[in-house]
Nucleic acid binder design. Structure first.
Lengths: 111, 111
DNA sequence: AATAAATGTCGTATGTTTGCGACATAAAAC
DNA sequence: GTTTTATGTCGCAAACATACGACATTTATT
């Protein structure tokens, strides 16, 4: 009874799925959105923007960082976060291509 | 101590997150891929294609159905599944737009 | 040096997802 | 009408995700 059987699928699908998972929580989307909204890198007062505890926001930030979607620069006691736009762009394209391939398939339900 | 605080976020973000969650498992991506690969609607021999138990595949199919990404037509003892291409197209665009907005933000890390 | 501010990590509780065997149902084949 | 085939649902166990308070650390202020 082995759980987490993800490894039986192609790495391509695993990677896309892993990326989708990062986007699968509104808090993380809100964080990305907020960072993008500031025209400068803004520190962890993301925390005051997001209606969750500091701990929880910090965790979500770590996940985004692990996924390579953001990165933080320490400056004194503060940390300045910003988007990794190349990575985001790359994943956007990958996601889009996957969906496109699906949408283009003429899967006609003749029944 | 209320868990599942998703409802504090905008419905827009909640919806995008919910969609991402459906794509967040390689088995579901593999199922979508497989259906798209057949040029006709193919019944649940998706099951023999996916290296998971029939039960588990059935569950993933239900999730995809609930999300409106596929739909099944009963014919005798068999069920023919096919993609809801309009829905897929719509979500593809929505996802893409969100990512685009992020990627375009000139979040310059000056530090 | 002592205190305050900003942030991160640990442990833990709760909730959700994944996976499967066993059972249920319903149409088809015999 | 009984058996076979295809599929779905139930209940459970393991794993994973989410959320937070308490503690730790590190730099700034006094």
């Amino acid at each position: 009874m082995t759980y987490a059987k993800k490894e039986v699928f192609t790495t391509d699908l695993q990677e896309i799925a892993a990326f989708a998972k990062v986007l699968a929580h509104p808090a993380r989307l809100a964080i990305l959105d907020y960072i993008a909204g500031q025209n400068q890198c803004i520190s962890g007062d993301i925390t005051s923007e997001i209606p969750l505890s500091r701990t929880t926001v910090s965790q979500h930030l770590q996940e985004l960082k692990n996924a390579g979607l953001i990165h933080g620069t320490v400056s004194g006691t503060r940390v300045f976060y910003c988007l990794e736009t190349e990575k985001i762009q790359a994943l956007k394209t990958r996601m889009h291509d996957f969906m496109e391939k699906l949408a283009e398939s003429q899967t006609q339900c003749t029944i």
